[in-house]
Design a protein around this nucleic acid. Structure first.
Length: 500
RNA sequence: GGCCCGUUCGUCUAGGGGUUAGGACAGGAGAUUUUCAUUCUUCAAACAGGGGUUCGAUUCCCCUACGGGCUACCA
């Protein structure tokens, strides 16, 4: 039987990187085994829907490059629709089937009924020991139940758990997990608005869509036994998928799982794409807009909770697919490491060819400094490639594209001293005489000029650097001179000579 | 509170009854470079604690502590 996994987010907001990682692990697992990766939208809570969230999820998956081959936004497929609200009518029959088989019951308790029970019993939960106090099809007469249903009285359908039974299941990451039904409660399966809860919908859809492996976050571990029971009661136990509960992504500081707020609080994105809250208009930064490369993000995310068991850390997507396996997933939660994320991105940028980098950086450069000639841009980015952590960092290298607007004051003060005995005229002539064909002969010529004029090489370099860069750091001077060309170099030198 | 899951350098992690406990990021030092960045070399840095089991436990078991998750007609 071929492997089928699903990523099943709820469109209650933008997908954050924890979700992206879950999607990634599903994707890697499916691809590794030649299976299918499905996107299912779990929008059974109509009150929490956020406009744009679904589209965001789809865009985000596209951007990082882990596209489902089936599901909402990806051409659908054999088991469409993949949006649970579009499958609303399919769930009721299963809930009713459960009632038929005495595995579930109608419950008519109102909100205030429930509150009264909670007030009466500390730590109240609706279960075998308390359901006799509720207004449900167990306590009410058949006639009254029929009457209430006929009246369209609001009701929910609850699972009827056995009083005491140990539910075991095998988690692919954690091994055997056991929970007693005494610790569980009669969870609502079908809500009074006719929508299923997560528990019902997820089990039904996974069964119907022939999902073989449920790979999801650890927050689902406590409800997994409930799902196991549901498979059993629905008669699907032999088709039950395997479960793998992933460790959570934690805040880099302090406690708790990584949340939306942490990113902008600590200075890194938690969302793949920038997101504007439709209500508050608050903007949350995104990896894409922050100048990250999708494959770097994937690589970084893959290593937060998984490792290949070797020393290799830089992996292409294909290599990740090949190396991936569930048993190399770490059990404990992982704190997000921003420094490591930056390192991954810088590594990926360094591994790009100048041509590739130029393409990626072109929109930023054009927007900041105007249109550049293609070959020039390629050479320019090559000069600063190993200085970029993010694509956006290119904007800190204005001197590659425009003349120096402002000189660094310490650089200027450093060269003032030098300028006293600097043979300005001779130097200009010297530059004019150079061929500007290759960097090393140019560098030799500069050194020769320095010795011939009894100047310190370092001083001449410092002067040139300030002229060309505006400050005392940057790429090798002769390389930069070749890039800029004689005319521009001369212009900048003359301009710098006029400073002070 | 109850239940479930977890705990190796600051962080991500490898390992697993007998190891100098390995790697990466970050940090320190040095080399290269006209500068900065890159690169290279190098240093520092960990098995939460207590009991067992064992000739021997970081590794297996139990307890404690700590961390995380769940505990909704949210997913």
């Amino acid at each position: 039987m071929s492997v089928r996994v699903r990523f099943a987010p709820s469109p209650t907001g933008p997908l954050h990187i924890g979700g992206v990682r879950t999607a990634l692990y599903n994707y890697l697992y499916a691809k590794k085994l030649g299976g299918d990766f499905i996107l299912r939208i779990e929008d059974t809570d109509q009150n929490r829907l956020v406009p744009g969230a679904e589209a965001y999820i789809i865009e985000a998956l596209k951007w990082v490059g882990i596209e489902p081959n089936e599901g909402v936004g990806f051409g659908d497929g054999k088991y469409a629709p993949y949006r649970q609200s579009d499958r609303k009518d399919s769930y009721r029959q299963y809930a009713e089937q459960l009632i038929q088989n005495d595995y579930a019951y109608y419950a008519f308790d109102t909100e205030s009924d429930l509150e009264a029970l909670k007030a009466k019993y500390p730590n109240f939960k609706y279960d075998a020991s308390t359901r006799l106090e509720g207004k449900n099809s167990i306590t009410l007469s058949a006639a009254e139940v029929a009457q209430r249903l006929a009246n369209n009285d609001p009701y929910v359908i609850r699972i009827k758990l056995p009083e005491e039974e140990h539910v075991h299941f095998q988690d692919e990451i954690r091994g055997n997990v056991m929970v007693s039904t005494t610790q569980m409660d009669d969870k609502v399966l079908l809500k009074s608005d006719g929508m299923p809860t997560y528990h019902l919908a997820n089990v039904c859809d996974d069964y119907i869509m022939k999902i073989t492996h449920v790979i999801r976050g650890e927050e689902w571990l406590p409800s997994a036994p409930l799902h196991v029971l549901l498979y059993r009661y629905l008669g699907w136990e032999n088709a039950m998928p395997k479960f793998a509960h992933l460790p959570l992504l934690l805040k880099p500081d302090g406690n708790g799982k990584l949340s939306k707020r942490d990113g902008d609080r600590l200075g890194f994105p938690v969302f793949p794409l920038e997101w504007t809250d439709p209500v508050t208009k608050e903007i949350s930064s995104g990896y894409k807009q922050g100048g990250y490369l999708p494959n770097a993000v994937l690589n970084m995310l893959a290593f937060l909770g998984w490792n290949p068991g070797t020393a290799q850390e830089i992996f292409t997507k294909e290599e990740l697919v090949n190396a991936f396996s569930l048993d190399h997933i770490h059990k404990a939660g992982a704190k997000f490491d921003f420094e490591k994320a930056k390192w991954f991105n810088a590594e990926y940028i360094k591994n790009l060819s100048n041509e590739q980098l130029a393409v990626l950086v072109k929109p930023i450069v054009t927007q900041k400094f105007g249109v550049q000639e293609e070959h020039y841009l390629i050479k320019a980015v090559g000069l600063v490639k190993e200085r970029l952590v993010f694509l956006n960092d290119i904007e800190h290298f204005a001197y590659l594209f425009t003349s120096i607007a402002q000189y660094d004051t310490t650089a200027l003060s450093k060269i003032t001293a030098i300028q006293q005995q600097f043979p300005k005229q001779a130097f200009e002539t010297f530059i004019q005489e150079q061929a500007f064909t290759d960097a090393s002969s140019l560098e030799h010529a500069i050194k020769d000029f320095a010795t011939a004029n009894a100047l310190k090489i370092g001083d001449v370099m410092k002067f040139l650097r300030t002229s060309l860069v505006g400050e005392l750091s940057g790429p090798v001077i002769s390389d930069l001179m070749i890039l800029l060309g004689k005319d521009e170099v001369l212009k900048r030198v003359q301009n710098c000579l006029q400073q002070q």
